[in-house]
Simulated scan of single mutants.
Amino acid sequence: MENLKVWLRKNASTAILTVLFIIVLVNKDAKAWLMRQVASTGILNSSISDSNETKNILAKASYAGFTLKNEDGTVINLSDLQNKVVFINFWASWCPPCRAEFPSVQELYARYKNNPDIVFLTINLDDNPELGKSYLKEKGFTVPFWVPAGNIPDTIYNGSLPTTVVLDKNGEIRLHHKGLADYSKDSFYKQIDELLKQKL
């Protein structure tokens, strides 16, 4: 026991870092917090691209048949949302990077939720949607809760969580970002504002 005390005195920082590392490994919220600190630097962020750039990379996708259902059972088809900016975020409650970026998604939603020209589709991909609902309630998030009501087109989601897609008013993909990002930055708000000013 005396040897352990001596070792701890000499290696206190190593012991503390080891304990923190174990906590981060086993606790989803601790992982999410750490990832959020990295995301807040902006190094993981993607930006909305120019319309001419996306025409060369991603052709305007056909969203016919991509339907979503909300908590009330209302079903919408993505192709019905033409003339609006659409922010789509695929997430799951068990996914640490999703948990890490969700506060920024909530901030973005809170900023624009009263703007009739933007629609938020935060699409939960938990095997049991109740887990996703519980997560939102537990954390006090108010983003709309959607689940797929059919197949998801590969052009917007191919299995990576989180995935965020922004469509402009013409239905063109202007952002397709796989992985963690921070959507509560002024630079991103400016890009959304530019899309909202877009004339059809």
Rank of each mutant, 00 (worst) to 15 (best):
residue 145 F to P: 04
residue 100 A to I: 02
residue 120 F to Q: 02
residue 97 P to H: 09
residue 116 P to T: 13
residue 69 K to N: 06
residue 118 I to W: 01
residue 70 N to Q: 10
residue 78 L to M: 14
residue 156 I to W: 03
residue 88 I to Q: 00
residue 154 D to Y: 06
residue 144 P to I: 03
residue 101 E to T: 07
residue 97 P to T: 10
residue 101 E to W: 06
residue 78 L to P: 00
residue 57 I to V: 14
residue 63 Y to S: 01
residue 109 Y to F: 15
residue 89 N to E: 06
residue 103 P to M: 10
residue 148 P to Q: 01
residue 64 A to E: 15
residue 53 E to I: 11
residue 120 F to A: 10
residue 106 Q to W: 00
residue 134 S to R: 12
residue 138 E to H: 12
residue 142 T to S: 15
residue 131 L to I: 08
residue 115 N to Q: 10
residue 93 S to I: 07
residue 49 S to K: 15
residue 70 N to P: 05
residue 64 A to T: 14
residue 110 A to G: 10
residue 81 L to W: 10
residue 148 P to S: 07
residue 78 L to S: 02
residue 76 I to E: 04
residue 104 S to T: 14
residue 58 L to F: 12
residue 136 L to Q: 13
residue 88 I to M: 14
residue 95 C to V: 10
residue 83 N to S: 14
residue 81 L to P: 01
residue 70 N to H: 07
residue 144 P to L: 07
residue 124 N to D: 15
residue 94 W to E: 04
residue 72 D to Y: 09
residue 147 V to D: 01
residue 140 G to E: 10
residue 50 D to M: 07
residue 94 W to C: 07
residue 77 N to I: 01
residue 114 N to F: 05
residue 117 D to N: 15
residue 85 V to L: 10
residue 63 Y to F: 15
residue 109 Y to C: 12
residue 59 A to W: 00
residue 113 K to E: 11
residue 95 C to P: 05
residue 102 F to Y: 13
residue 78 L to C: 02
residue 60 K to D: 03
residue 104 S to N: 10
residue 68 L to T: 08
residue 90 F to Y: 11
residue 82 Q to F: 06
residue 150 G to W: 03
residue 136 L to T: 09
residue 133 K to W: 08
residue 153 P to Y: 06
residue 137 K to M: 09
residue 119 V to D: 05
residue 72 D to I: 03
residue 71 E to Q: 15
residue 127 D to I: 03
residue 147 V to K: 11
residue 87 F to W: 08
residue 59 A to C: 00
residue 98 C to A: 11
residue 153 P to T: 04
residue 80 D to L: 04
residue 112 Y to F: 15
residue 92 A to L: 10
residue 153 P to N: 10
residue 147 V to E: 14
residue 146 W to N: 01
residue 79 S to T: 06
residue 122 T to G: 01
residue 112 Y to D: 08
residue 93 S to F: 07
residue 90 F to N: 03
residue 74 T to Q: 15
residue 123 I to L: 09
residue 100 A to Y: 01
residue 152 I to F: 02
residue 87 F to C: 07
residue 65 G to M: 11
residue 156 I to L: 11
residue 82 Q to D: 13
residue 92 A to D: 05
residue 55 K to T: 11
residue 76 I to R: 04
residue 88 I to P: 00
residue 113 K to Q: 15
residue 63 Y to K: 00
residue 117 D to C: 06
